[in-house]
Design a binder for these strands. Structure first.
Lengths: 150, 150
DNA sequence: GTACGAGACGTTATATTGTATCCAACGGCT
DNA sequence: AGCCGTTGGATACAATATAACGTCTCGTAC
């Protein structure tokens, strides 16, 4: 199932990479497509399984290398608390997002909240700390699941 | 080396657990002591190695079970981005802390910043999300290492 | 004091996640 | 064509975490 939204994400990834002078190869594009097509975050080995379908066998390093590239380019994010990966909603500008992770239905929402970013930044600078990477994940119950009483 | 500070942490853990009607057994106390004695976060297998010294061999589940208990009681925290654990500075009240992790010297600072907690909370409630656990880790360069030009 | 039950622990095996290494294939360049 | 840097294939392995099951221990009730 290739939705229109997914297609534009891939197209945008193409132009982004061209503009940056890096190569979105077939393998990398494939990993990104799999992540974008999934409603949920996927583990590296789930991606591996998805890539194996209909094609020859692949090994873990293939997926991890593609993921490393996509992470560097900001095209995907890693959810540390899940050991899983998601496609990014808005890869054009560098950003540090936050994630709401429902442990009932598995849904993940990517936020880009200025207030959180600011409070994190000022807490860091008060300590003289220079941030490079931010991991902000809130695990809990999403609105839908809360209503259903789960 | 058993510092005074470490001793009071263990003593406070004892009384906390007694007050809560849960058992801080010898194994659990040992894991907590090892974590508190360490200047850095420790992986589960590092704790396991430390516990093996001078005593009989232990298996991973022993350590993971002790860690699960200590996490539940808020006596230790898990650093998801490092797959490692640290003793908590102030276990008396339930809290969601934030961590500054220096990737040069490995030092970890636990913060309890109200502004961050508030901004996270309001972002979650705007989405109708009910938080249960918060993972906030900022990876970067600490003040000391930044000065040394690392 | 003894029997019971829940929780804690020991032990083995295994699942899951992630890397090191080395070599082959490809692509752009001169 | 020949060179060289990047990408990918393949094997092996390291690191992190859990399942399953039996045994022991401790508090409690009788």
């Amino acid at each position: 199932m290739t939705s229109i939204a997914e297609k534009t994400v891939l197209d945008r990834a193409d132009s982004l990479c061209r503009a940056r002078g890096v190569r979105l190869t077939a393998q990398r594009r494939r990993v990104l497509a799999i992540l974008c097509a999934s409603a949920r975050p996927l583990g590296a080995y789930e991606i591996l399984d998805a890539m194996r379908e209909g094609s020859r066998a692949l090994a873990p390093p293939t997926v991890y290398r593609a993921l490393d590239f996509l992470l560097e380019q900001g095209l995907v994010h890693k959810l540390e608390s899940l050991h899983a990966f998601v496609g990014c909603n808005h890869p054009e500008h560098p950003h540090s997002s936050q994630f709401l992770i429902c442990n009932s239905c598995g849904e993940v929402t990517e936020l880009e909240d200025e207030a959180i970013a600011r409070s994190l930044g000022s807490a860091a600078s008060m300590s003289g700390f220079q941030p490079q990477r931010r991991v902000v994940e809130v695990i809990g119950t999403c609105a839908g699941c809360a209503q259903k009483g789960r």
